[in-house]
């Protein structure tokens, strides 16, 4: 950092504060993500109670030492259900993002590499896709193929395709004009080889950041679909489903509405912080102006 740069940061002390704050994004984000993954993995082997065990006798209890987050209307342990719900959330979101990357990135790379009518076509297609609100697309898709966690993955994934196509195209466009790409082309490399060796490695960082953001959006979308009954089906535990069940007992058992919502919010918050932190880390251009 030259003196001039150092000085134009607002003020020494505050600069430090901001630096800590920035790296803190990464720290908190990673911590939350690992926590969620940890819960999901552990829930496969162990939960305090079996998440589906009905014990009507213990129904609608508030938080206690025996049941940290209380019990629901069937007497199921809310904490255990949240652990099991983590698996469902992460699984759906991960698949959805993978679908988006798997189809969107090649599409965007193709548009950038070929330009011309192919580019125009891909762009119009994404324009069109954006005319349908994401959640609406998901609602229609799940409606067509029937409500299930798998269909929720596909539905959310479909919306991710144009997002990744756009981002990839945008980042790759400029690279195609770079000298080293021209040089590679002179050396006889084809479009596919150049894309693989020179373009994709250089758009990686943008994709990672976008993937984090989309992952967060997918967690919310999954919860939303499950909330309206189009996502995970019983007996699979799901945060969104828990929230919709809670609504019936909102007068008597508010805790049922609190904990699943907290789980979603904290997970999404962590992922967003992770995205912000990664962007600061990977993209030096935005680091200055934020």
């Amino acid at each position: 950092m030259t003196l001039e740069e150092e000085i134009s940061a607002p003020q020494r002390g505050r600069g430090l504060l901001r630096a800590i704050f920035r790296s803190r994004n990464l720290t908190i984000g990673l911590f939350v993500l690992l926590l969620a993954i940890g819960m999901a993995v552990v829930s496969e082997f162990w939960t305090p109670y079996p998440p589906n065990a009905l014990r009507i006798r213990d129904k609608l209890q508030g938080p206690s030492l025996a049941h940290w987050f209380g019990t629901d209307h069937f007497g199921r342990d809310v904490f255990s259900m949240i652990m099991a719900g983590a698996r469902n959330s992460l699984e759906v979101a991960l698949t959805a993002v993978a679908v988006g990357i798997g189809i969107g990135v090649p599409l965007g790379a193709l548009a950038a590499a070929r330009g011309g009518w192919i580019d125009g076509f891909v762009m119009r297609l994404t324009d069109l896709a954006f005319a349908f609100p994401a959640l609406l697309t998901a609602v229609i898709v799940t409606a067509i193929f029937g409500p299930s966690a798998v269909n929720a993955m596909i539905a959310i994934g479909i919306f991710n395709i144009p997002v990744f196509a756009r981002v990839t195209r945008g980042a790759a466009m400029g690279l195609w004009k770079r000298d080293y790409v021209l040089a590679a082309r002179c050396a006889g490399l084809g479009d596919a080889a150049i894309t693989w060796r020179h373009i994709l490695p250089n758009v990686n960082h943008v994709l990672i950041v976008q993937a984090t953001i989309q992952f967060a959006l997918a967690v919310v979308a999954e919860a939303g679909l499950s909330y309206v009954g189009l996502g995970a089906q019983p007996p699979q535990a799901s945060w969104g489903k828990m929230l919709s069940d809670s609504q019936t007992y909102i007068y008597s058992a508010a805790h049922l509405a609190i904990f699943p919502g907290l789980a979603i919010t904290i997970t999404v918050l962590g992922l967003n912080l992770l995205g912000d932190g990664l962007r600061d880390l990977l993209d030096p251009r935005v680091r200055r102006q934020r």
């Binding site: 607002p10 003020q11 505050r14 600069g15 504060l17 901001r18 704050f21 967060a216 919310v220 919860a223 939303g224 909330y227 929230l243 809670s246 609504q247 909102i250 509405a257 699943p260 919502g261 979603i264 919010t265 904290i266 999404v268 918050l269 967003n272 912080l273």
Partner: peptide, 28 residues
């Protein structure tokens, strides 16, 4: 108020606001 407490507070609140799903906010 860039870099000052007012900035951190309001942007911290915004960060949380972005993460809250609207249907849960509705329930709250």
């Amino acid at each position: 108020r860039r870099g000052k407490p007012g900035d951190f507070l309001s942007m911290g609140a915004a960060q949380i606001g972005v993460a809250i799903p609207n249907f849960w906010l509705g329930l709250l």
